[in-house]
Design a protein around this nucleic acid. Structure first.
Lengths: 175, 175
DNA sequence: CTCTCTGCAAATGTTTTGCAGACCA
DNA sequence: TGGTCTGCAAAACATTTGCAGAGAG
């Protein structure tokens, strides 16, 4: 018993890159409190680098794709951001993404799930998947924003923010 | 009264590209039964070409971005697909996307909306936006698939589809 | 020993940007 | 006329692919 069953069952050969990438996501699942469960190809690349393992980005993309096909990982894409992956271990859930710090929280709501199935049926859709993401400021960022800009908002800021400062729904990147 | 109020109110100058792009989306809103409300930058480019107006793609991207900032258009991004825009005229709604033909249907569900607000509050999130997309086969594609592959599925296809044929959640592109 | 992987570099597709000239108010 | 736009070409990204050599079983 050396080779993880995820790999054995997928028919993929147990190579160093694949073992390390799988391990990385599994470690994230257990140790991380939150947010680190979700990693982009580049995140994976840099994590492995930190552990002195240089794997080509192309390989990482290929492995992530294969893992997603084998249902070992789940691929997510928050709004305009690049794809992130998370290990397919916990129950199905949706996401709440902080537009300021990029933190990702997970949630599950039975009522919403049921409504979705009902709605799909009503529209004659054969439901395959769905993705629900809620964007906003997380607890910490709300607090920080109020502390920093609280007074300013009341006094100097226009009600309708200027058109000139483009506001992304999701920050460009959280490296 | 020549210049559309959307442009006047946004502070953007009334230039030919902007007028035509706005008109294009407004026309799509009224005439189209469904699906054509949503257009990518490239869709817009080709539509204008068909009307003998060649606008640089860069300009189209810029205009779409400005319109989205001005809330004239809404920017959507279905899974791994490129961004599409729709006019911000109707009520808030979510989307049901056919993974086979790319058709987009809209829906609104009060119960889901309310659950989302509640969930955001419970997590301490200051809700800014959300996006819910349901992916599946639309009525027409379900029918077509059954007609074409119905028998084959029962007899020759493995229960667990082969790993070698990558299945995209959303078709790469619907040009 | 064979078929599967990997790394590299180059290609891809979408979106963004710098800049010089054209255009609206 | 002045600041705002546009078009072009080039850059920027994230992602994918072709190919030759390395590695797993």
């Amino acid at each position: 018993m050396e080779i993880p069953k995820e790999l054995r069952e997928s028919g993929l050969k147990a190579t160093l890159p694949r073992l390390k990438i799988l391990e990385l996501f599994q470690r994230a699942e257990h140790s991380a409190p939150n947010g680190v469960r979700h990693m982009s190809a580049d995140d994976v690349y840099r994590h492995l680098l930190k552990e002195n393992l240089e794997v080509g980005l192309a390989t990482i993309y290929r492995v992530l794709m294969q893992f997603a096909e084998a249902k070992i990982l789940l691929r997510r894409q928050f709004d305009g951001d690049r794809a992130v992956f998370e290990i397919n271990a916990s129950e199905h859930h949706d996401h709440m993404v902080c537009v300021s710090c990029g933190k990702v929280e997970e949630f599950f709501d039975k009522a919403i799930e049921e409504r979705q199935m009902l709605l799909a049926k009503q529209h004659g859709f054969s439901l395959r998947d769905h993705s629900l993401s809620i964007y906003g400021l997380c607890k910490g960022c709300v607090k920080r924003d109020r502390a920093t800009f609280g007074a300013a908002i009341q006094s100097t800021m226009p009600l309708q923010p200027a058109l000139s400062s483009p506001t992304r729904l999701v920050p460009k990147s959280h490296k």
